[in-house]
Simulated assay, not measured.
Amino acid sequence: MLVDDHAVVRAGVRRLLEQDERFSVVAEAETGERAYQIFGEHLPDITVLDLSMPGIGGMETIKRMIARYPTAKILVLSMHENAAFASQALKAGAKGYLAKSGLAEELSNAIQWVMTGQTYLGSEISHKIALQMHNTQGDPMQSLSAREFEIFRMLVDGVDLSSIATTLNISLKTVANYQTTIKQKLGINSPVEMVRLAIRCGLIES
């Protein structure tokens, strides 16, 4: 199953996959919500999923799918070439992470790897994670859970608490509690500090 909000990307990935007779695309979805709805109808061997989509987004989709279908194999295909995104996606339950820039060379290899139950990291991403592990300061994002990371990104994007609550289908009080926990874990107090930290961690452009 292919999950991406851009039809052009889905078509490109489908074309790439269908050149290989071992693969066939059984379903497509343009949002995480839709993917979650139709997963049970198709029970794909593997789901190739984008992180940046409208609605609940990729990270939350991974969490929900794995909670309902624990054996689901999910490979993230993302424009984010950042170690924090890859780490959080794996934490949420994905079995692989590939940057869209490495798509053509690595996709079939990544799918086969994940299908055998192993974890796959694209060459660029694994290099960045290795560098990060040697960085004495470490990555503050590693202290956050996958849900906290997703809420942190929404807050940085200027999404208000009630909209976050609606999108993630949780109460406003729960979102406020998450916000407090995130600030405590990251040692920040204001929205400005939050944005500065996101820039420093490479999550947004300065």
Rank of each mutant, 00 (worst) to 15 (best):
I125F: 01
V13G: 08
T31K: 09
A198L: 06
T180A: 14
A176S: 13
G55W: 00
A29L: 03
T136F: 13
E106N: 15
L144M: 13
K73Y: 02
Q184F: 05
V159G: 01
Q19L: 10
T136R: 11
Y178H: 14
M1T: 09
Q37M: 13
A83F: 02
E205N: 10
Y69L: 08
D45L: 06
G102V: 01
K100G: 10
S206G: 14
H134E: 11
F23A: 09
P70D: 10
A11M: 14
S101H: 05
I199W: 04
I204S: 12
Y178Q: 11
S162F: 03
H127M: 11
S123N: 10
V3H: 12
N169A: 15
V114P: 10
M1V: 11
G57H: 07
R10C: 03
E205Y: 05
L17D: 04
L197Q: 06
L144A: 04
R10T: 07
E193K: 05
L155M: 07
S171R: 02
L107K: 04
I38E: 12
M194F: 06
K91M: 10
K95P: 00
L51C: 02
H80S: 03
A146W: 00
L51M: 15
S78W: 02
Q179D: 08
V9P: 02
G158L: 13
E150D: 14
S101T: 15
E41F: 10
T61I: 05
A165G: 14
N135K: 14
T47G: 06
L155R: 09
R196A: 06
V175K: 06
F39G: 07
